[in-house]
Computed example of a mutant assay.
Amino acid sequence: MELPHRLHRLIGPDATWSADHEGASGTALRVRSGAEVFYVKYGPLARAEHLRLCWLRGRVPVPVVVAFDDPVLVLADVGAPSLEAAAPADIGTVLGRSLRTLHELPVTECPFDGRLPAVLERAAANVRNGLVDSEDFDADHLGLTPEAIHDRLLAAYPPVEDLVVAHGDYTPSNVLLPSSGEPVVIDVPALGVADRYRDLAIAHRDLSEDHGPAAWEAFLSAYGLVDDIDEERLYFYRLLDELL
């Protein structure tokens, strides 16, 4: 990554760079410069995340933006582990409570569009352009082609959208838990106005598969949605996630 000049001065020439950190996904590099630690992101997703972090500031706890020089985003280290390190029941409770706070933000104030027409257009473009990694599909979709997933997606199109300010990739690894204070939401380039089930589907998949049904039940209780779970919408938004 070639840093703009002012960011190079900020981080310093002797900084240590690493892609080996908790939750590493190839989208962020951990940088230690003296006693300070930063996370650096690059490209269109960094640009999208910067806009959303600026909007979220003061609304929900998010990382501090140290600097942004398009297309490089520098974030302060929160200094806290993700929820992946917590006990299953605690994971579900904190994840549900934090998502409820996010979903209670006024939709009318959010300038980012994650509604189905816009997101389905992006999913279809990813399929056409060969940008979908079918080897990363969920276990029950392995062996299917992106085109087959897309066909299933269109066939399952839900009749309604229950719009909230949605995270777009709401997993336990994207919520940090400081020893004191509120949970911190990270990795928000996909945040926008969307059906609440876009977040519920990903939370359900990760909690159920990785932490067991008790974590999912704790999540539902903390979120405030115990009855009337729409299984068809859960599946639709899990299909959608395969293509994004």
Score class of each variant (00 low, 15 high):
2 E>R: 08
9 R>Y: 06
12 G>S: 07
13 P>S: 13
19 A>E: 10
20 D>M: 11
23 G>V: 09
24 A>N: 00
26 G>C: 14
26 G>N: 07
27 T>E: 10
30 R>D: 05
33 S>D: 04
34 G>S: 10
36 E>L: 13
37 V>W: 03
37 V>L: 03
37 V>S: 10
40 V>I: 14
41 K>Q: 11
43 G>M: 11
47 R>D: 03
48 A>S: 12
50 H>P: 00
53 L>Q: 07
61 P>M: 09
63 P>V: 14
64 V>I: 06
66 V>H: 09
72 V>G: 03
73 L>K: 05
79 G>E: 06
80 A>G: 04
81 P>D: 06
84 E>G: 06
88 P>V: 08
92 G>N: 07
95 L>Y: 01
102 L>M: 13
102 L>C: 08
106 P>C: 07
109 E>L: 15
112 F>T: 13
112 F>M: 10
114 G>K: 01
116 L>I: 14
121 E>K: 14
121 E>I: 04
128 R>V: 06
132 V>N: 08
135 E>F: 00
137 F>C: 04
137 F>W: 09
147 E>D: 12
148 A>V: 01
151 D>C: 06
151 D>M: 08
152 R>T: 08
156 A>D: 11
158 P>K: 05
158 P>G: 03
162 D>E: 15
168 G>W: 00
169 D>E: 07
172 P>Y: 14
173 S>D: 12
173 S>H: 12
178 P>Q: 05
185 V>N: 06
185 V>H: 07
187 D>G: 06
190 A>Q: 09
190 A>S: 13
199 D>K: 03
203 A>D: 02
205 R>S: 09
206 D>Y: 13
208 S>L: 15
214 A>I: 13
221 S>R: 15
229 I>F: 05
229 I>K: 13
231 E>Q: 11
233 R>G: 06
234 L>H: 04
237 Y>D: 10
241 D>C: 01
